[in-house]
Amino acid sequence: MTNRLAYPLAFASGGLLTLMVLFNGQWAREGTPLFASWMAHGTGTAAALVFLLLLRLGRRPSETRRPAPLWAYLGGLSGAVTVMLTSTTVNSFLALSGTLALGLAGQAGFSLLSDRFGWFGLPARRIGGTDLAALALILAGSLLVIFT
């Protein structure tokens, strides 16, 4: 049941990402990448508050869950550093295409390790041959899209 919903959701969220990059990039065209990311995080914080209020209006008081460790609140640091790193590399010899391609490699490599060993308190998962073949096809196709 989860999977049936998860596949199309994940694919659609990639489309959301394309639009997000387009819109955030409109700030960076005349401002700096730092300004673009700062604005995206600021307006995002406000938007998330609105979403949370809307979600909570129709909900009964939720059951108490075990609290998250403190580090789990720091995911935003990682995202902010990503912007700082990639805004330097797109202006290097790598350009946008090289930055994207190496970024995909970094994502794929780290995800495989994270799943295999169950990092960050998420369940460990076995990665099979089919998964690796699927990953290889998607990465190969992505490289074709990026570099042509």
Partner: peptide, 21 residues
């Protein structure tokens, strides 16, 4: 650039852990 990609996965995992709680 490689690290930037890896950090995308890091933040998704960290946020995923927070979402569980």
């Amino acid at each position: 650039a490689f690290l930037g990609g890896a950090l995308v996965s890091v933040s998704r995992a960290i946020n995923g852990r927070l979402s569980l709680a």
